[in-house]
Design a protein around this nucleic acid. Structure first.
Length: 751
DNA sequence: GAACCCATCATTTTT
DNA sequence: TGATGGGTTC
């Protein structure tokens, strides 16, 4: 197979029987999966229809399909490439009725879950102070991740009163979910498992179809997902899982690392292939990552190596406060920029979202464009959620949660008292809120509000008619954007916002328009668009997936969201005990908690291709209190020879910005050394020394060596002259003749 | 029914 | 520090 190393190509062609691919960071994992699929189709003439590839995020799924599509001529559309969750939705939409469900179920997100829990606690007469919603949700989620029913959990409670109560909440919660005809994210997996367990015919349909199954990020699977994969693969046993135990960072959401560690116990005939060659990072960066992760116990033995050049030392800076730290990072970025590095090559990573604020402030001040990944997304805005609640209620009249959310939004004079009466009565008669209100017999019970409720229901009925979910409208006549316009308009939602006239209201109106754009996009890009499909997409596809990667901006995100990405230049901030590793993990009685933080550190370090800077502060404000954190243990785990420390007294060692956009950072002079020069073709945006001016970089070629340059091809090193922290290298290229360049920028590779 | 004020409480997150 | 939510007051 072309362009693959031995291990990679072995992994591609080993297709019969169970296979575990341990793919280290930057070892070309996605490449292997896509080539493997191409191999199955092109070389073995496998029908694409019988291939299933499961990923965790939609982004990964899309990327995979695109890359397969480039490798093969036809058929990529009929491969099932999807996330666990969308796969399960697809199966349940077809067969959920086989186990007594309704195929038009609604998907509930965490906010909806919270609302259900609230009702449940009220109903059971339990104190939300003693049993916080969050705790209930995570209890239920944990149970479902383990494929345990309320009865199972009840048995497990033993003599613990609290556990028994929690099991009760779980049972009552499920009852409500059935009433609302809704499934939460964990239910999607759980119910599919239940379907497969109870209906062998359905199981056989999928088992027979999927002759070849691949699971990406296998270290992130929970127990239920493990069971699901196991069932699907039971017939042909052509199961290939790809993962890296060292990058398991999602234990808190149920990821079970033993799935990958015990794969060989589960499948004794499994072949194991390790991908240990890293194509991403410099030697220094990779060795630092290896040194850190070596402190963990209970991992699969594995040692990443690379043929890449040694590279610059890792910079480690200590500042006085978090503000100075941010300031220092910005200065470093401006330096990089003045060397010709693109903003989009740079990422700032942190442990907690709260850390982004200070960084953002400084970035704005310095006029540096940035994009923030994660955080509270578009679909969490109140006005957007309101609109989606309308759509959800239209699609599923049993959805009491959405009904309660919008019955008086915008205000239509239906107050809490009335709503509570509706709830009580409807609950007593076993009807949904919608059906209860729709029944003419009940209007009188509702007194003065009766007519208002009548109006509301008849409006919703009109919307329902328009939506086409009743099957009364020919599909080509359904227009979701029209439906959306009607909702925004006829409910008076927009009018209410316009009347408000505040800046905030204006922003909300913009968000309403933005949602319309998204709906229009969906309608355009989908073969058979419908309300169900739209809601699915909204629930299952995070809006972070559609970020415009073309923009030249610095990326800000948590270490968690950085997994799977790479950047030439990475800054990891907040390298302090109790921040990273987090205090909770240090205090935990589970020894694996700190190990998981260490894996997170490993993930962070291995995101960097060329340049890595770590930083911390000697004092930091956390939750309103000033703290004086010690240096992170992970710093101590990086061998000194890879690292260049500076700072401690913060500001004094921070260089002024090379070219501040505003003039925020005090005296702005010039950056010494190679800074300031406009990048030209000889100076491909590359590496810069960042903070230090002492020599640090080491390169593995000498005068007379033959080297390869990414653009100019092969050449011979004519001279190598030290200048600042860098070397000025002159190379005589076979094709283009003699070129002078900075070693750190040239990315020369010895041949 | 709505505005306002005070208490509370804080990892990580995709689906 | 800051967001959020419940309770109180008008």
């Amino acid at each position: 197979m072309t362009g693959l190393n031995d291990k990679q190509s072995e992994a591609c062609s080993y297709v019969e029987g169970p296979l575990l691919i341990l793919a280290g960071a930057g070892s070309g994992k996605t490449r292997v999966i896509t080539h493997r699929i191409a191999y199955l189709i092109d070389e073995l003439a496998v029908n694409p229809y019988s291939i299933l590839a499961i990923t965790f995020t939609n982004k990964a799924a899309n990327e995979m399909r695109e890359r397969v599509d480039k490798l093969i001529d036809v058929g990529s559309v009929s491969i099932w490439v999807s996330t666990f969750h969308s796969m399960c939705v697809r199966i349940l939409r077809r067969f959920y009725d086989r186990i007594g469900g309704k195929n038009n179920f609604t998907i509930y997100d965490t906010d909806d879950q919270k609302a259900v829990i609230k009702e449940v606690l009220k109903n059971l007469g339990m104190d939300p102070k003693m049993y916080p919603e969050k705790a209930c949700i995570s209890y239920i989620s944990k149970a479902k991740e383990e494929f345990l029913t309320p009865d199972d959990m009840d048995k497990r409670s033993g003599t613990s009163y609290r556990d028994m109560q929690m099991a009760n909440v779980y049972r009552e919660y499920q009852k409500r979910m059935v009433q609302n005809n809704a499934l939460d994210f964990d239910d999607l997996i759980f119910k599919t498992l239940e379907l497969f367990t109870r209906d062998k015919e359905v199981l056989d349909i999928y088992q027979s179809r999927f002759r070849y199954i691949m699971v990406d990020e296998y270290q992130d699977t929970n127990h239920s997902q493990f069971l699901l994969v196991k069932m699907l693969a039971a017939k042909y046993r052509n199961l290939c899982v790809v993962g890296d135990d060292d990058q398991s960072i999602y234990k808190f959401r149920g990821a079970d690392i033993s799935n990958i560690l015990n794969f060989e116990d589960e499948y004794p005939d499994a072949k194991v292939i390790k991908l240990e060659q890293n194509y991403r990072s410099t030697k220094v960066i990779l060795d630092a990552a290896n040194s850190v992760i070596a402190n963990n116990e209970g991992r699969k033995s594995k040692k990443l190596w690379t043929e890449n050049y040694i590279g610059n030392k890792i910079k480690y800076m200590v500042f006085e406060t978090e503000y100075e730290e941010a300031h220092g990072v910005i200065n470093a970025i401006l330096d990089q920029r003045s060397m010709g590095r693109e903003y989009s090559d740079i990422a700032i990573l942190y442990r907690t979202n709260a850390q982004s604020r200070v960084l953002e402030e400084k970035l704005i001040y310095a006029n540096i464009p940035y994009k923030l990944v994660g955080g509270t997304g578009f679909y969490n805005r109140k006005e957007v959620r309101d609109m989606i609640a309308y759509l959800k209620l239209i699609a599923n009249h049993s959805d009491d949660i959405s009904f309660s959310r919008i019955i008086n939004v915008p205000r239509r004079g239906i107050g809490a008292t009335t709503v509570n009466r509706i709830k009580d009565n409807a609950y007593a008669s076993g009807q949904s809120l919608y059906d209860y209100c729709k029944s003419p017999d009940h209007i009188d019970d509702l007194g003065r509000s009766g007519s208002k409720i009548c109006d509301f229901i008849s409006m919703m009925d009109d919307f329902t008619e328009m939506s086409g979910i009743l099957g009364n409208v020919p599909p080509e006549d359904i227009c979701l954007t029209d439906l959306y316009d009607s909702i925004v308009d006829k409910t008076g939602y927009k009018t209410a916002l316009v009347a408000e006239g505040t800046d905030e209201a204006k922003a909300r109106i913009e968000n309403l328009d933005e949602l319309k754009n998204k709906i229009a996009h969906y309608e355009q890009d989908t073969d058979e668009p419908g309300l169900m499909g739209l809601l699915e997409e909204i629930s299952l596809v995070a809006d972070t997936d559609e970020g415009l990667d073309t923009d030249n901006k610095v990326t800000l995100m948590t270490l968690h969201s950085a997994k799977g990405l790479e950047f030439p230049c990475v800054y990891i901030v907040g390298m302090e005990e109790r921040l990273f590793p987090s205090g909770l993990s240090i205090d935990s009685d589970d020894p694996d908690a700190v190990e998981e933080e260490r894996r997170l550190c490993y993930v962070g370090i291995t995101r960097a291709m060329e340049e890595l800077m770590l930083s911390g502060a000697t004092t930091r404000m956390i939750n309103g209190t000033r703290t004086y954190p010690a240096e992170s243990r992970f710093i101590k785990e990086i061998p000194k020879e890879f690292m260049e420390r500076s700072g401690v007294k913060g500001r004094s060692v921070v260089k002024p910005a090379a070219r501040p956009a505003v003039k925020p950072f005090g005296s702005s002079t010039f950056a010494p050394g190679i800074g300031g020069a406009k990048p030209d073709i000889n100076n491909i945006p590359g590496v810069q020394k960042g903070f230090s001016s002492s020599g640090s970089a080491v390169y593995d070629y000498e005068v007379g060596d033959t080297v390869r340059h990414i653009k100019f091809g092969k050449g011979t090193v004519v001279s190598k002259v030290k200048g600042g922290s860098d070397y000025e290298v002159t190379v005589d290229f076979e094709k283009v003749g003699e070129k002078k360049m900075f070693a750190s920028l040239a990315r020369l590779k010895k041949v």
